[in-house]
Amino acid sequence: MYPKEFEYASPTSLGEAVALLKKMGPDAKVLAGGQSLVPLMKFRLASPKYLLDINGISNLEYIKENGKFISVGALTRHHSLERSELVKQKLGLFSETASWIGDPQVRNNGTIGGSLVHSDPAGDWGSAIIASRALLKIQSARRERIVDSDHFFKDTFTSAVAPNEILTEIRVPVPPDGGRSAGAYEKLERKAGDFATVGVGVQLTLSRNRKTFEQAGIGLTSLGPTNLRGKKAEKALVGKNVSLETIEEAGTAVSEEVKPTDDVLRGSAEYKRAMARVFLKRALTRAARKAGASGV
C-alpha cells in the first residue's frame, strides 16, 4: 500500500494549474479529494509521475444559483452538497445522492468533480447529472468548453475530460416551478458505504395539474459500462398520466435498456436488471409524491 514516487505540485489558481498540466503532459494526474486516486496509487494500479493538487485553488469549491442554473464548483465536497440548504430546496436529487456516497470520511474529502472525472459506472454522481441534464464546464490551457451530461461519460473510467483539462463546474438547470418538480435517488447496497448494486436517480417535473409527467430524467448507476441514461424509461413517462401503471411501464422499459454484468459479490445481471425496475419505481413514486402527485 505504498505508492511509487511522484512529483507534487500545488497551484493556487486555475490558470497556473492548467499551465502546469500542459507542461507535465499525460503523466500528470489531478488530485482532488483523493478518495479514488489515492487508493489506486497505493495499490500501484495508477502511478502518475506528477500529482497536481487542486485543493489550493480557492474558487473551485462553491454552490451558487445563477439564474437558470445552480452552479457547483468541481471541488465541492459530497458533504457540502448533502448539507446545502439551497440544494435541499431546489435539487433534492443532489442532496439525496450525496447522502448515499461512502461514509462520512469519504463524503468530507471526496468531490463531485473527482467522482465524475473518475467515471466509475458505480459512482452515484453520474446518475444525478444525467437525470438533471447538467452541463459540465471543462478548462484547458487553451480553452474552456461545455459538455452536456449525455456526452460526458465515454467509457468505464473514461470521461470527456482530457489529461490536460480540468473539470471546473457542474451546472445544473434549476427545475421548473419548484413545487411540481422533484428528484430522488434510490440505491441498493449490501451495506452502508458500499458501492451501488444498482442506483437510480430521477428528476421529474409534473404538469401544473400534477396529472401528467411533463419532464423526466433518469440516470442509472452500476447498470452498464458507464452511468446510463434511462431513455426508454423516460419516454415511457413523458406526457403520460401520473399513475402506478405508467410507473410500472417505465420500470419495464428500464429493465430492458440496462446493460448490467454478472457480479459474484453483488448479484447477477438478471438480478440487477430486476432491481433497476424495482428501484426506478421507488424513485419515481417518491419523486412524484414530492412533486405533489396523488394516487401513486
Binding site: D103, R190, K191, A192, G193, D194, F195, V264, L265
Partner: peptide
C-alpha cells in the same frame, strides 16, 4: 447475512479488500 470469502476458480480471493468483503456497519 453478508460476509463470505469468495475465491474464483483460479484461487484469487475476490473479497481481498474491505470494499468487497461485506463487513456490516451499525446501519444494518
Amino acid at each position: 447475512l453478508w460476509e463470505e470469502a469468495v475465491y474464483d476458480e483460479h484461487g484469487n480471493l475476490l473479497t481481498g479488500t474491505l470494499s468487497e468483503y461485506a463487513v456490516p456497519t451499525a446501519v444494518e
